[in-house]
Simulated assay, not measured.
Amino acid sequence: MPQYINVEVSDGIQIITINRPQAKNAITIDTAVEMAAAFEEMDARDDVRIGILTGAAATFSSGMDLKDFARTGKRSVVEGKGFAGFVEAPPKKPLIAAVEGYALAGGCEMVLACDLVVAANNASFGLPELKRGLVPGSGGMMRLPRRIPYHIAMEVVLTGDMFSAERAHQFGLINVLTEPGLALAGAIKLAQRISENGPLAIQTAKRLINEGLDWSSDQMFDLQRPRMAHIFSSLDAREGSTAFAEKRKPVWQGK
C-alpha cells in the first residue's frame, strides 16, 4: 500500500492525491516512486479512462522535498520517468491537475506535465528556482513557453515570482477556475465529460496533439494519417456511429 499518496478509482476516473500535508506535499524519492507506480496502473487498467492529480490539505505541492534531499542525497526523480515519477514520461491517458493552494517549483512543473488544469481562484503558481541559483529543469523552461505567451513565460521564470490563478487563467494555463475548496470537484466534472467519449479515441487524440506540436505544416497530415488509421477501423468507431443512429449512449470497448 502506498504511504505517501492516496489512489482511488470511481466511474472510470483515477484520483491520485499527494498526501504529505506536513511537508506541503513536497515530493521525496519514495513519493516519486509511488506516483510512478500509480500512473503505470492508470495506463494499465481497462476500467480507467482519465486521471486526476491533486494534493491533500488544500495544497497541491511545493515541489521537491529539499530537507529529504539534504538528508538522503537522492533527488525526487525516477529513472525514465523524471521528477515525481511522471514529468518526463506522462501517462498515455489524459491527466487533469486539480490545484488548491500552492503549486510551486516542481509542483508547478507537475501542473505543466498535466493535460488540463482546474484550479481554485485563490491558488498560486510559481517557478522560484532562480531565486536559489537553480533553474526549473523538470519542464518549467520547456513547457511554460508552450502554454503561455513567450514574454510572460520569461517573466515567470526569470523573476521567480509567484503568479495568481486568475492571471494563469487569463493566459490560458487553466481550463476551469473554481471557488476555493472546489478544484477537485471541478476536475471530476471535467473528467466525466471527457470519459463519456471513446477511450481509444481519447488516448489517440492526446498522443497526436502532443506529437503534432513538433510537426511542420507540410508533414503534419502525412505523419498523422498512420497514427490514427486504427481509429476508423475500431469497434468503438462502429459503436459510436451505431449509437448515434439509434439515439442511445455508446457502450465503449476501448478496441
Rank of each mutant, 00 (worst) to 15 (best):
A205D: 04
G139N: 06
R146D: 04
F221G: 07
C114R: 02
A57H: 09
E8D: 15
L66W: 09
T17S: 07
W215K: 07
D68H: 15
P90I: 06
G198D: 15
I16G: 10
K92I: 03
F69S: 03
V87D: 09
R49P: 05
L130C: 06
P199S: 14
E79H: 14
Q14K: 14
S10F: 10
R20Q: 05
K92D: 01
Q14Y: 15
F69C: 06
A37R: 13
F232Y: 11
A187R: 02
I52T: 08
P145A: 02
R45P: 13
V156R: 14
N6W: 11
A84Q: 03
S124D: 09
L95T: 11
L116P: 00
N25W: 07
I5S: 05
A26I: 05
L158F: 08
L144W: 00
T31W: 01
E79R: 11
A120W: 01
D222A: 04
T242P: 02
G140S: 04
A237L: 02
S217M: 15
P226H: 06
E211D: 08
D115Q: 04
V156S: 04
M64D: 15
D218F: 04
A120D: 10
A168L: 04
N122W: 08
E79F: 07
T59A: 04
A32I: 15
Q192P: 01
I188N: 12
R225M: 08
N121G: 13
L127A: 00
G212L: 12
I15L: 07
A84N: 06
P180E: 12
A245G: 11
A89I: 02
A185M: 11
Y150Q: 10
L177W: 10
F69I: 13
T28N: 02
R146P: 01
A168I: 06
D236M: 07
A70H: 13
H169W: 13
Q203L: 10
A113K: 03
N175H: 14
E166C: 04
E246I: 00
I194R: 05
L184F: 07
P250V: 13
E246A: 05
I52Y: 04
I16A: 09
A37K: 14
G240N: 10
L200H: 06
